[in-house]
Amino acid sequence: MRERLRSRHLVTHVLLMAGALLMVSPFVWQFLTSLKTLGESTRIPPTVLPSSPEWGNYSAFFDVVPVGSMAVNSVLALVLRVAGQLLVASLAAYVFARLRFRFRGPLLAGFLVVLMVPPQLFVIPQYEVIRAMGWLNSVQALALPGMFSAFGVFVLYQFMRTLPPELDEAARMDGANPLQIYLRIILPLCRPALAALTILTSLFSWNDLLWPLIVNTVPDRMTLPVGLATLQGAQGTDYPVLMAGSLLTILPMVLVFVLLQKQFIRGIAMSGIKA
């Protein structure tokens, strides 16, 4: 019986390994290409290994587009959006999940409606609002609409509803007001949900293309994805530099994922959302 189990697992391992290799092969190819010369990258038939690694492709990426400021923009937008989203979403979720007030139903419906509508329906007027405020080509332009997304409210609302109502009642007996209950009791209990939301929002923010492409059009105000897209437009055929640049931009999120794998996976499972 043991022997049979093991041999059955052998077939499973072969299948899973073959699949896994298919999954990661584009990244392997990306890395190998990033070390080739331009000539090697367009050779027919392709060479697998670079004759001598061209690390210069990585620095070339920095010479073509203002990568430094783009990276700073990406990071600042991410931090601002995540911080704003956590604050805004946890406040709204707390009010809807724990307080009793007039118009709770219609107000909550306002958030849920937004959740069901595809993002393009908001984009044109959002752009007009940002432009009217004179904030085109700024960090706040990148972060603002996403901070108020209904998605975060929904995730935290679902979580807060599962906390026992006795928590609030006991605190009220002791004379705490709703703001104190939110800060001292509910928020600390929401740590797993807040962590999941942080991870998902970071991922959206770091990888997003459409919105940053529209609002920040000056090169040193762009985010990394937009910068990469521009780079491809400018030198669409310098594959080694493109591969080096694209590898550098995906590395931070992959590292964070490897370190926080459990939280990532719980976040995806919890929200059931496509990243």
Binding site: M23, F27, L203, P225, S246, V254, F257, F264, I268
Partner: peptide, 16 residues
């Protein structure tokens, strides 16, 4: 391994 493409930037992998 199967999950890595989910966290990578679509713009970057599209280039690859």
């Amino acid at each position: 391994l199967y999950f890595v493409p989910v966290v990578t930037m679509p713009v970057a992998v599209a280039m690859v």
